[in-house]
């Protein structure tokens, strides 16, 4: 009696592969089945009067309201305002975060000056600054954009700074033996080497931007998705509130996809296993 075992396998023919593929489609459909069933139950509960529309509007009502808001221009206008605020705030955060991270990542003195205050500020909940921001900047666009910028700067700074600091010193040494100038070393070694961490920071920053925007627009605003929702609250329009929530959700999802796309394009040099690695 020997201890040998035989391992066998058979190469899949095109036909059996076809079957697996349709099976896989079925599985991916199954993933959506449960949410669809929940929405159906929600609709039934509303239609039968089990769930008061004062508390929550029915899915059909939300769809109708959403369409009306699109047609009369309310939703596109408010969406545009919100996007502009989030975009400007995020743009400001990226410029500021990158600049600070470069200063503190590339020089010891810079780190001493920049890093400590930022690490202290980071622990403050940014949303607690809303009253102060309104006092300082009034109720226009400025406090809203700055609030978004404030929240989003930290993830950019922290991740990029970490990325620059964790560059393999052997690569920097190599650059110096090749006679690269300081600027060439920054451009060819530090920046591309820190890019994966920067993109991780960007993903967090985008998420934070939406969060800050929601608060900024609900506390004090005359336009924007958040304002539209607060307005609806006064008139007990749960359908409009839910449309707003849906829009926020879609925006968050889409911006995350965009950053993922950036990652897979810009980090093409990474072997497949590490691509799109979640942070």
């Amino acid at each position: 009696m020997s201890d040998a075992i035989t391992l066998t396998g058979s190469y899949k023919t095109a036909e059996t592969r076809g079957t697996t593929r349709s099976l896989r489609t079925l599985v991916s459909i199954r993933r959506y089945a449960s949410p669809i069933v929940l929405v159906c139950l929600w609709q039934i509960a509303c239609s039968s009067g089990l769930l008061s529309t004062r508390l929550v509007a029915s899915p059909v009502q939300i769809a109708v309201t959403g369409w009306t808001l699109v047609c009369d221009g309310t939703l596109p206008f408010n969406l545009g305002v919100s996007l502009l605020r989030a975009g400007s705030g995020l743009g400001l955060a990226i410029s500021l975060g990158v600049a600070l991270a470069l200063v503190s990542g590339l020089s010891r003195i810079g780190e001493d000056i920049v890093d400590a205050p930022l690490q202290i500020l980071r622990t403050l909940p940014a949303l607690a600054l809303v009253p102060l921001y309104i006092l300082w900047f009034g109720i226009g666009e400025t406090p809203k954009i700055l609030l978004v910028a404030l929240g989003a700067t930290f993830p950019i700074y922290l991740n990029l700074h970490k990325g620059i600091r964790s560059i393999d010193p052997k690569l920097v040494e190599m650059a110096s033996t090749l006679g690269l100038s300081r600027w060439q070393t920054i451009r060819d070694v530090f920046l591309p080497g820190a890019l994966p961490d920067f993109l991780t920071g960007l993903r967090y920053a985008v998420g934070v931007s939406w969060l800050m925007l929601v608060v900024a627009e609900q506390v004090n605003a005359e336009s924007g998705i958040g304002h539209m929702m607060m307005d609806a609250q006064d008139f007990l329009r749960t359908d409009i509130i839910l449309v707003g929530l849906l829009v926020y959700g879609v925006l968050g999802l889409m911006s995350d996809q965009i950053v993922r796309l950036l990652e897979s394009t810009l980090l093409a040099w990474r072997p497949d296993g590490r691509k799109g690695r979640t942070a």
Binding site: K170, L171, E173, M174, A175, T177, L178, G179, L180, Q184, D188, V189, P192, G193, L195, W269, R270
Partner: peptide, 24 residues
């Protein structure tokens, strides 16, 4: 004009091979 080859290749992973060769 000196050059060094280290025990580890020390190629920049984000640059294609030929760009690594003429780095700088």
């Amino acid at each position: 004009d000196v050059s060094v080859v280290f025990q580890e290749h020390r190629l920049l992973p984000w640059k294609r091979v030929w760009k690594n060769v003429v780095l700088g």
